[in-house]
Design a protein around this nucleic acid. Structure first.
Lengths: 333, 333
DNA sequence: ATAATGGTTGAAAACGTATACCCTTTGAAA
DNA sequence: TTTCAAAGGGTATACGTTTTCAACCATTAT
């Protein structure tokens, strides 16, 4: 592959001049510029991004850490990031760290080795201290779907407690007095926060949520099916089910229908996230909209901004609140 | 950030020795090795991937070109690649090129600037010649979901003609004599090939597929709805619909149901791809399984293998054939 | 005519790493 | 005792860029 040196030789100029032409630098005559450009074209020259990054200490790529790409939630997240990197001519360096301490750490470290100065990271397994530490090393370090007070201005997050509350309040307003909850079995913040919100609303309405009405499982369709199966097996009575996410809600609906229980006529079901399948499944899912894509774009913009030298403002944070999307899976009772 | 030089100074050894320790090179005593390692640990040393790539001419990352991340198909593709890059300690450099000539080209070129020697590219807009040209420049250049005879051994692809045929044959075997087709409006190979297969099967069964029974739209749920709407508007009679993909099939089902037409009792619907939503939607979609994830893993392995110097074998190619997944959206008539 | 100016260009150092090649020490074989 | 090989370690160069500084040339103002 042709280097800057080859071009210089062919054009009969120095390395410096060629470099200036490449970067649209100021100090080069228009005829020389034209000639050099022509030769670059002819020889199919492509600047070496690695050499560039080495000397400029700027990497022209943004690191992204997520859990699993085939989870629609993360696919949307990645897409949100991608839409802004594309605009800024920045490359995405992708690392997957499957909600495990070891892999998440490894993912971030690899990105660090590439000297990316902007990063959008989704981390659930790493503790606050570690992440704060990283944020000191990387100017454009931004967390998504997580809130850490010390670096509040680097956090783009969803108010899950309010989300849980909204969910429960809506169900209650529709007249449901016996609600069951299907939660995620992972010991991370999200399910706990959502559950906390649900509990608050229920208490406030002078209702009760016995532990036996809460089932934990993997946050996917199978988990939803399993959880619902368990709920039905206990013989518990409920007219509404609040699920941790849309996939679990969908699984729960399937299981209800398989038991001859009509949704929403006999049991209402609510999801969370509003991923694609919420619109696809039947009945269409009433759910909470999690604007991941928008948030991811915001996070990417933030990362790029901080990376370019702008200092984050103190006392600022980027909190989003989910909103209820009313579709067909919840009915007034 | 600490460099190799800082480590060398702190440890009182030369750069070369430190470098040897980092790379587990041979010529260094076990006590020195231990001492240097300790210092690296203390100073939080991280090798600079750019400098490394520059001098070794190896990039330690694999380039991926896809259209849109939030399309579940591409999310699965990316996931398939990711599973093998993770095993090989290779980073993913992601470029999205939204089925447009300009952006696809730009995506590949950016990757080239990063000097990745392994690439998995999904390109529909670029012509054969351009891609063949790229394959000469990049040792580990592998195409997915496309077949180009000249570089057959770098293609991991699905036999779409056979897929289309299988679809139609299955519908016909279930007794359907009047089938409609909902295809993608994009002028790329896939829809044409699938349609070709469908036509073959129909002709072979002595049936007819009038042009009026084929609708074209964007390959998503909205497109499926629109296409079905048009089909219904023409008053055409059909008992089965073959869709270009699962999203369109799902949209078509919605529209049918909205018109009070029962699926599958009155009209059967078939999808293609078997993405997640095929299992989620109601009725569950009978569809053709496109093993993207497996194929993407294969492509990544191939790319890495070729990149590491192994020459592709002549006359070899990686063709996959879709299989029918029978669920609930097709019924015998 | 001379000095000053401004626009072009080139030489060289630097970025952080890997490695080919050379030097030293040590112990054993001759 | 001499010779030699092996092991351990250092020196210097290269990778492909960007950028600072200085030099050159042709004008123009004095």
């Amino acid at each position: 592959m042709a280097t800057i040196k080859d071009i210089a030789q062919a054009a009969g100029v120095s390395l410096a001049t060629v470099s200036r032409v490449i970067n649209d630098g100021p100090k080069v005559g228009s005829d020389t510029r034209k000639r050099v450009k022509k030769i670059m074209e002819e020889m199919g020259y492509r600047p070496n991004a690695n050499a560039r990054a080495l000397v400029t200490k700027k990497s022209a790529s943004l690191g992204v850490v997520i859990a699993e790409l085939h989870d629609p939630f993360f696919a949307m997240l990645a897409h949100g990031v991608e839409s802004v990197t594309r605009k800024n001519n920045v490359q995405i360096l992708l690392s997957a760290g499957s909600i495990e301490k070891e892999t998440e750490l490894r993912a971030i470290e690899t990105l660090l080795e590439h000297r990316v100065e902007a990063m959008v990271v989704h981390s659930k397994a790493l503790d606050d201290k570690t992440l704060v530490e990283f944020s000191k090393q990387v100017p454009g370090f931004v967390l998504i779907n997580r809130y850490i007070p010390e670096i509040a201005n680097r956090c783009v997050w969803l108010d899950n407690v309010t989300g849980g509350r909204l969910m429960a309040e809506y169900a209650i307003n529709q007249g449901h007095e016996h609600v069951a909850v299907i939660s995620s079995q992972y010991r991370i913040d999200d399910p706990n926060q959502r559950l906390e919100g649900v509990r608050t609303a229920i208490k406030h309405a002078n209702l009760v949520l016995p532990e036996s009405m809460i089932e934990y499982a993997t946050p996917d369709q199978e988990g939803g099916e399993l959880a619902m199966q368990n709920l039905l097996a206990t013989g518990a009575k409920f007219t509404a089910v609040l699920a941790y996410n849309d996939a679990m809600a969908s699984g729960a609906m399937t299981m209800l229908q398989d038991h001859g229980i009509a949704v929403p006529e006999q049991v209402s079901v609510m999801g969370y996230d509003d991923v694609l399948l919420a619109k696809y499944c039947r009945p269409k899912l009433t759910t909470l909209r999690y604007p991941v894509e928008m948030m991811a774009s915001k996070a990417a913009e933030l990362a790029l901004k901080y990376a370019s030298g702008k200092k984050p403002e103190e006392g600022l944070t980027f909190k989003y609140t989910p909103t209820i999307i009313k579709r067909d899976s919840v009915v007034r009772v």
